[in-house]
Design a protein around this nucleic acid. Structure first.
Lengths: 113, 113
DNA sequence: GATTTATATTAGTATATTCTTATATATGAA
DNA sequence: TTCATATATAAGAATATACTAATATAAATC
């Protein structure tokens, strides 16, 4: 996992917001889509890119794909990850994303996205 | 200073190597050029980019321009900077760059680059 | 003033990235 | 089997990036 590639991958607003959301635990694509208000294709492509860099992993359950921060990444770059947590807290849009996530999760019933 | 822009700027091997060198203190363009073995134009453009992002500053002395890590950047993102130090130490080429820098500095006489 | 040295900028090409639209796949439900 | 939902991939256009070669600027020296 190349450092430059990691930074290149992190160097995008949408991907940073996605990572910020996933820091709180795994989410399915449609949740991320709802929170960010971005098209499914767009979210999917950004997720794929972060996964191919090794920052994220995914697991499939029924028709949903759940993405989460890759454990290997966390273990290989613990200090970088800590600094990301610090930086995320400083981001202006972070709070509203987290609020929106809470709303999306609350309004979500079983067998639905 | 946008976080995504910072990462985007860091997302390049040459720029990471330059930053690694400048962590040890200011250097003129020709020193960086010698250490990295990269063309002057190339080094200059990467430096300009990092400066415009706010990661570096420069001062001019006689015909030389000395670049260094921007103090404001260090003060605004201390934890990120710490993580960079940790990551740099893990980079495979870092040691050889530092050695090369020592050689370049030693072989350098007054009024010469 | 002419020349050399250090650095920056411009022009042009090749490649990468991002977005939108359309389409494909895969699972579950009717 | 057909339909609806969740996700991924492909195609095409617009923009950004990186590199090389050539040129410009600016200071120092002769």
């Amino acid at each position: 996992m190349e450092l430059a590639l990691i930074f290149k991958t992190l160097g995008d607003d949408i991907r940073l917001r996605i990572l910020g959301l996933l820091m709180g635990g795994e989410l399915c694509v449609c949740d991320i889509e709802s929170v960010l208000g971005i098209s499914q294709v767009n979210v999917s492509r950004h997720l794929a890119r972060m996964k191919s860099t090794g920052i994220l992993t995914s697991r499939k359950n029924a028709q949903w794909v759940y993405y989460s921060v890759n454990r290997t990444f966390m273990e290989t770059h613990p200090v970088l990850l800590d600094s990301l947590i610090v930086e995320f807290k400083k981001l202006p849009g972070n709070k509203s994303d987290m609020k929106k996530l809470a709303v999306v999760k609350r309004n979500k019933s079983e067998n639905q996205c």
